[in-house]
Amino acid sequence: MSNEEMVARLSVSVGERDHVSGGSSAAVTLVEYGDYECSHCGEAYPIVKAIQSEMGDKLRFVFRNFPLAQAHIHAQDAAESAEIAGEEGKFWEMHDMLFEHQNALTEDDLIRYATEVGADPETFSEELRGHTRKERVREDFLSGVKSGVNGTPTFFINGVRFDSSWDKETLTAALNSAG
């Protein structure tokens, strides 16, 4: 059922503002729009991790926020918390921590995780309560909407939305053939 008009593409290319993991000159870029409180994203998390370790420098992985905040009450704060930790260079540590503790994302939990990953607890709490990264998260969200993100997780491979199943075999095969 391939229909050229239906191919959704990233409306905002990967750039300076993104959190990027993996080789900067990688042939393949995988972008995920995700929600830390979404159980499907939680299932995708170890799959992406495994693929990253298998593909090494051949893969560049980017995570953008797509919190369904009205449905998942902790999703917005969780997204902001990773961004705040990111200001101290701890984005990926916090990202991993959140997905590994999806069912415990209260404010106290977030502050505890931030401390564990090495962010300054006082600054972190202040920024979390002041919602200093709220706009940043919304920008991610809207870039997703404009790119045809219709649920979480949504993946893009080299800028094109990946509509197949994201089980490890299928996703790996798609990434390898894109490189």
Binding site: L68, A71, V145, N150, G151, T152
Partner: peptide, 13 residues
Amino acid sequence: PVCGDQIVLYNEI
């Protein structure tokens, strides 16, 4: 189901 739901998505927008 919530995570891929059209209505839930529109509610966020």
